[in-house]
Design a protein around this nucleic acid. Structure first.
Lengths: 336, 336
DNA sequence: TTGTAGGCGTTATCAT
DNA sequence: ATGATAACGCCTACAA
């Protein structure tokens, strides 16, 4: 069923059929009605390939998600989906591994699919520095700040990860904790990991309290299991501690379990604070104290910016979404 | 940069360039070398639209995921991605809401994208009954059994949900529990919910123990919060119980938290068993007792079947993946 | 308002 | 082994 068939069926020419189908103004009411009904009856669906081949572009927006298992990205995607569904655009989602180069992938997909815009869910500024110059369409980086990168077609919406992380550590310090250990995420490939680490360093520095990474810090990939193992490893260093800052809620969950397995109760013996604000946290025992990123808000703003740039050709924008310290139940004051 | 440009650049014709690029046999070694180098140098990327317009099909496999927030699907997707990446096919992932009609969506996408095969991650047999006849390409339904549907182009890989559910309830019964409440998933739109409910009924019936849904059963959507609320609602019925079967781990997590909030300890006062086998369960306090579906294995088999059917035109297959009862720590014997 | 025709980048069928 | 050329389904000047 092509527009040619439709043309024969209705007696109009392919040109008229095409125009009617695409809602062009220069079609008589009658022709339009006849054609649309015929299309509906015969279950006609336009051939996207032909359409895009001709138009050289699609109404396509690409979402490149770095890490299929990241629940925050899942939450964002739900928002993005529904927002784009209400727009004249189509969304296509592409997953890559957390270690992969999202910009490289984007370049490839741009050639293949000619999207109008890109949403990056997660990313590393290094990859952008190296390859984003090859991308000429508007893009928005979500969860990371792209201001410093200075690309005129790259916007960003992010949480101030460093500040959020700093806030978490300061909370522990405010509670009187001094023997604090940190479970960090990978710094190599992710700005988030790096910035959270920096925020942590700032927190200690700001209070004039020494921070010795070699004893107090342990890096791991984002998973329950690695959080668990990191906590055990820190315990095995035999430097007693009274508080843990896990630079991701999943790490915190693993850490709490590890502490329990070593007979330590949270928060009685050890306080634990995470960061991210997974919905799960509120249903754990104890409820996880954490710093919540407003991911749904980030997603919403990201889509808004992209659509706005697409339609009004405005300049790139960089927004920061505020975070919230959630009290939870996994924090207690240090014993005097 | 098109093959036409490449043709001019190398002095060969577009036909030869096309054949060289696609590894056809009837191209001289020299021509091939020249053309491939030119392509690499100029960063040529084939235009998928043109290719597919001509070929009438893509090497595309479509994954239709029903529920972007379902962690199990995320786990399956990782497996599927990597398996398909090693095959000559491309994967495209499409998300729909848990309530949407996946088959209807598939029909639409078939017209738009002409995929070679479809993987359904989750689905409802009702939708298949009503609309799958419109789909003529091979498909595999994951997590649900499609044997009864009798479509010659629809395979399936699933866990025996009814039996798994029955096993969970029997475990509670074996521990001496008689006052059991059930938190169910939606039965309306999902076979899984329905079958797990049936398995539960069978368990009671098989032991000759009465089951009164109006007092012991409460339905909810899959989320921590709804599990939490369902448990509170059951507590408020003032029919004391000693055990909870939550028909999804997320519901179990919410239930445990609700029990705690009412001063009940798990498993001392109330035992809790879930079903699904989320990685999270092993890091909760207490570790969640549950029945694990081998989702990664399901994904692996699903892809295997699809590729096999695609290449060897074999008949539809229906496989059942065994489940495992994970002991966890949220179960205790009923007090005498 | 409608029809005609050229072309988007490819592949495939012919000849050569 | 290579080259010319006709599709694939659609859009869009341009003509009528």
């Amino acid at each position: 069923m092509t527009i040619k068939d439709l043309a024969e069926k209705t007696g109009y020419s392919v040109g008229t059929v095409s125009r009617a189908l695409n809602g062009m103004p220069d079609v008589s009411k009658k022709a339009r009605a006849v054609i649309l009904r015929a299309a509906a009856e015969s279950g006609y669906e336009p051939n996207l390939n032909a359409k895009q081949l001709k138009q050289q572009h699609s109404a396509l927006i690409l979402a490149i998600v770095r890490g299929a298992r990241n629940e925050l990205f899942g939450m964002m995607l739900v928002v993005i989906q529904s927002l784009i569904a209400q727009s004249p655009y189509r969304l296509e989602t592409d997953y890559i591994d957390e270690e992969e180069d999202e910009v490289h992938r984007a370049v490839q997909l741009c050639r293949e699919k000619k999207p109008l815009g890109i949403l990056f869910l997660g990313g590393s500024s290094r990859n952008f520095q190296e390859g984003f110059e090859n991308i000429r369409i508007p893009a928005v980086l979500l969860t990371n700040d792209a201001r410093e990168l200075g690309f005129s077609n790259l916007s960003s919406v992010s949480t101030d990860d460093a500040l959020a992380s700093q806030t978490a550590v300061e909370r522990l310090l405010d509670l009187g904790h001094r023997d604090i250990v940190i479970i960090g995420g990978p710094r190599e490939n992710s700005d988030t990991g790096r910035q959270r680490y920096e925020g942590c360093v700032s927190a200690f520095a700001g209070r004039g309290i020494p921070f010795h990474p070699e004893q107090q810090y342990r890096e791991s990939r984002y998973s329950y299991r690695e959080g668990y193992q990191a906590a055990l490893a820190l315990l095995d260093r035999n430097q007693p501690f009274t508080a843990v800052f896990a630079m991701a809620d999943v790490l915190a969950v693993g850490a709490v379990r590890a502490l329990r397995d070593r007979g330590l109760k949270v928060p009685r013996d050890v306080s634990v604070i995470g960061i991210d604000g997974l919905p799960l946290g509120d249903f754990l025992c104890p409820r996880l104290s954490t710093v919540r990123q407003e991911v749904e808000e980030m997603a919403r703003r990201g889509v808004t910016i992209l659509l706005d740039v697409l339609e009004n050709h405005g300049p790139a924008r960089h927004e920061t979404v505020p975070f919230t310290l959630l009290p939870g139940e996994s924090l207690a004051a240090a014993k005097p």
